[in-house]
Simulated scan of single mutants.
Amino acid sequence: MAKDFLKSVEDRRTYYGISKEAVASDERIQEVVEHAVKHTPSSFNSQSARVVVLLGDNHDKLWNITKETLRKMVPADKFAPTEDKMNAFGSGYGTVLFFEDQKVVEGLQEAFASYADNFPIWSHHSSGMLQFVIWTALENEGFGASLQHYNPLIDNEVKQEWNVPESWKLIAQMPFGKPVAVPGEKEFQPLENRVKIYK
């Protein structure tokens, strides 16, 4: 039986300890991602989200690219923790790359000039919703994931390696795999400080 929606929201956590063991087929991963991209809302129904899913050697290549990019920036004597982190992400099964198509955003800015300043913000809102939907859906399949932001450092190499159109702006990276470590306890601020209800 499928999980209750709110239970799925609660169970979605950040997993840094992940492995390459498959817990769902590649076909199922594709089905989940495509369903999320199709049905996640976007401002003005712009459908500006673009996604690249990297599996197998392509997943490994992404985190090697990221590691070598950071190696040029982090002093050698301080690089070990960064390398460990990249290796941890690379130890997963795959990575979802989230993009927003700037041609779509710019087209909306031209068509609705009075809202022009808001469309880049709304584009990020749409991307955030898609990230959450895919993250939660992967969790429901038995994967653990985390959300990373190594853009814009890796943007150019990612576009070249995977033939990504120039208008696609990289927003986030989501490495995922079979969880091999339990997330730590999560602390919550009092809800009365965060929610107000008037009747």
Rank of each mutant, 00 (worst) to 15 (best):
A181L: 07
G142F: 09
S42H: 03
L147K: 03
E10T: 05
A88G: 08
N156L: 13
P183K: 06
Y15N: 02
G144Y: 01
A172H: 09
D155T: 15
F99N: 05
P175S: 08
F119W: 09
E161L: 11
S127A: 15
Y198V: 08
R50L: 08
N163F: 00
M86L: 11
N140V: 01
M174R: 06
M86R: 04
G184I: 06
E34Y: 11
T69Q: 13
Q30F: 12
N58M: 02
P75K: 10
N140Q: 11
A111Q: 13
S46F: 01
L147T: 07
W162V: 10
E139M: 13
I65Q: 06
I65C: 12
S46A: 15
L147N: 05
K72A: 14
Q148L: 09
K7T: 15
S25V: 01
D4R: 13
F89Q: 04
N163W: 02
K72T: 13
Q30M: 11
T69H: 10
L153N: 10
A22S: 09
S126Y: 04
S43D: 02
A172S: 13
D155S: 15
K78H: 13
F188K: 14
E68Y: 08
G128L: 03
K186H: 04
F79H: 13
Y150F: 14
A145M: 01
E187D: 12
G107T: 01
V33E: 02
E187M: 10
M73G: 05
E10S: 12
V23C: 00
A22L: 05
E83A: 10
Q189K: 15
E141G: 00
V33F: 01
D77Y: 06
R71Q: 15
L153W: 05
R194Y: 00
S48Q: 14
R28P: 01
V133Y: 07
A172C: 07
G142D: 05
G107L: 02
I18H: 00
W168N: 08
N118S: 15
W168V: 05
P165Y: 12
V9F: 10
K7F: 11
A172F: 01
D57N: 10
M86E: 08
H125F: 13
K199A: 04
S91R: 12
E68D: 14
L191K: 13
T14V: 04
A145F: 02
L62A: 01
E139F: 07
Y93Q: 04
F188R: 14
E157G: 00
G17L: 02
G142H: 05
T40G: 00
H125N: 12
K3I: 08
E21D: 15
K20Y: 08
G128R: 09
E27S: 12
K38Y: 10
E166V: 11
M129V: 00
S46W: 11
R13F: 03
A88V: 00
V133S: 06
A2S: 10
Y15T: 08
E21M: 03
P120D: 07
D11P: 01
I171K: 12
V158G: 07
E106H: 08
K7A: 14
D57Q: 14
K20E: 13
K103L: 05
Q30Y: 05
K199E: 05
I29Y: 00
Q102S: 09
F79I: 13
A80V: 06
D117S: 09
V74P: 14
L97Y: 05
V180P: 08
T40H: 05
K61F: 06
E21G: 03
V74W: 14
